[in-house]
Structures are given as structure tokens and as C-alpha cells.
């Protein structure tokens, strides 16, 4: 047996029409670890994490979450499996007919018996965690892109999920905000032991939050391992993609942003 893998992506193939996106992707995520998925735009990173939560089903291969094969679950089993997850979408995907507060409190209202007051307290708390204040009553339309992203993040963590999928959590945020979100991802992991799968292009973020990194290229993972291992991979494709990451990772030990907050 050995390691306790909470997510196993096993030889997953996925095509849209005649366009192959995943062509035998393999990835195992250990319980409680922070896995960062990197790779160029359009390589299928978002498609990959949608397979983990059962939004997409593989054409071939399988995805096993917590011992259950996602493709074999019925509607109800899939629903209860999804309760273990929180997901931040690349475009935030906030419900634009609801307020930010209603968005963040959505799952609390649907799936818990908490009173309105308790729910509001949690909502405000989660919004604070992502650095948003006094936005509960605004509609998503009234927020900037970066604020939407953070509100989406608050919605993803509202139920303190076991597994959190972050699709480009820091894209479009200013550097200080990136720091805060990186810290948040790390603290979700350390405080509640959440497993995180994070997609990012941001090498700074990757080197800060990753226990392990996996690089997706041409439909497969071509390098998976500890950040130092992946960043020092001799495969030119990986080396090229990661050279900034390598610098950041090596510098990180020496410099870190002097003042937080």
C-alpha cells in the first residue's frame, strides 16, 4: 500500500471532437499535500481538475477519489463525493443573480442547518480570509476581476472542504494580494489538513505553496516531484518552463517579503 492517495488520475484520456487534450495523464495526490499543476495555456489543466470533481468524465482511464471511481458513481454518490470538494474556477463562476454573500454562503444554506446568523458570520469570516470586506451585499458585476476571484475562493472554502481545487488562484491579482492568497492556501492545508490541487502559471506562487509540482505537457505529465526536483529537471521543456520558478525557489530561502499585510 504505502502512501495514502486521496486522488488518483489513472491513464486519463480526453478529447473534444477530434482534438485530444489528455492522452494518458497519470497523477496521484496524497492526502493532505499541496499539489501544484503547471503547464502552458490550453494544455488541459482545467480539464484535468474537472475530471477530479466529476464535471468531466474520461474517454478512457479512470479517476479515483477517496477510493471511489468517479465515473462509476450514481448521481447521489457523486453529490456526496463533491461535498468533500471546494473548487475555485478559473473565471470565478460566481452566480451573477446572487449577491457575494449569497454566493459564499450557498453551500452552507443548501447543505447545513445553520441559522441565518451563523451562516452570515461564516461568510464574513471567509471573505475576510481572502481580503474582502463589506462586499456581502454587492452583486458579482460590481466587483473587479481580482475581487471576483477572491470571492470565488471564499465560496470554495466556505464548507472547510477536505480537498480544494484552485484553478489559477493568483492570476490577475497584485503581488501583495498574491502573497495573501498563497498564505491562505498554505494555511487551509495546515489548519484543516485540506488537500490542495492548484493550477498556476505563477512560479512564485508555485514555489511557495507546493509540496509537489507536476507539469502537464502534450496531454501527459512529463515531470512530477518535489519543487526542487521538477525545477531542476533536465528535460528542456520543463527546464524552460520552470527557470523562473527555479530562481524564485532558490532565492526564497534568502529573501522573503519583509513586511506582511
Amino acid at each position: 500500500m504505502g502512501k495514502d492517495y486521496i486522488i488518483k488520475v489513472d491513464n486519463v484520456h480526453k478529447a473534444f471532437g477530434d482534438k485530444s487534450v489528455l492522452t494518458g495523464a497519470n497523477l496521484s495526490v496524497e492526502r493532505g499535500e499541496s499539489m501544484v499543476v503547471i503547464g502552458g495555456s490550453g494544455t488541459g489543466k482545467s480539464v484535468l481538475i474537472k475530471h477530479m470533481i466529476g464535471l468531466m468524465m474520461p474517454d478512457k482511464g479512470k479517476v479515483v477519489v477517496d477510493g471511489k471511481e468517479v465515473g462509476k458513481l450514481n448521481e447521489e454518490e457523486l453529490n456526496s463525493l463533491r461535498r468533500k470538494f471546494g473548487m475555485l474556477f478559473q473565471g470565478a463562476a460566481l452566480f451573477d443573480s446572487l449577491t457575494i454573500g449569497e454566493n459564499v454562503g450557498f453551500a452552507l444554506k443548501e447543505h447545513t442547518n445553520l441559522s441565518k446568523r451563523d451562516r452570515e458570520k461564516i461568510v464574513i469570516d471567509k471573505l475576510n480570509m481572502v481580503g474582502l470586506k463589506n462586499v456581502e451585499n454587492l452583486k458579482p458585476m460590481e466587483l473587479s476581476g481580482g475581487m471576483k476571484k477572491r470571492a470565488g475562493l471564499a465560496r470554495a472554502i466556505a464548507m472547510d472542504p477536505e480537498i480544494i481545487l484552485y484553478d489559477e488562484p493568483t492570476t490577475g491579482l497584485d503581488p501583495l494580494m498574491c502573497d495573501q492568497i498563497n498564505d491562505l492556501i498554505v494555511s487551509m492545508q495546515s489548519k484543516i489538513g485540506a488537500t490542495a490541487v492548484t493550477i498556476t502559471h505563477d512560479m512564485v506562487s508555485a514555489s511557495k505553496i507546493a509540496d509537489r509540482v507536476a507539469m502537464l505537457y502534450n496531454g501527459k505529465f512529463i515531470s512530477t516531484g518535489k519543487p526542487a526536483e521538477v525545477f531542476n529537471d533536465t528535460n528542456p521543456v520543463v527546464a524552460n518552463f520552470c527557470y523562473i520558478g527555479k530562481i524564485v525557489y532558490e532565492t526564497e530561502a534568502i529573501y522573503s517579503r519583509p513586511i506582511k499585510g
Binding site: I53, L55, N79, R82, G91, L94, F95, D96, F106, A107
Partner: peptide, 17 residues
């Protein structure tokens, strides 16, 4: 619009059909 902005997917992820 909800479909193309992934709001429908988001409903699924929140276990709301």
C-alpha cells in the same frame, strides 16, 4: 450565459443539481 461562464458547473461542484 451561466453555462459558458461555468456557473452551471459551479452548481454541480456545490452539490446543487
Amino acid at each position: 450565459t451561466m453555462k459558458v461562464t461555468e456557473q452551471i458547473d459551479a452548481l454541480f461542484t456545490l452539490s446543487a443539481n
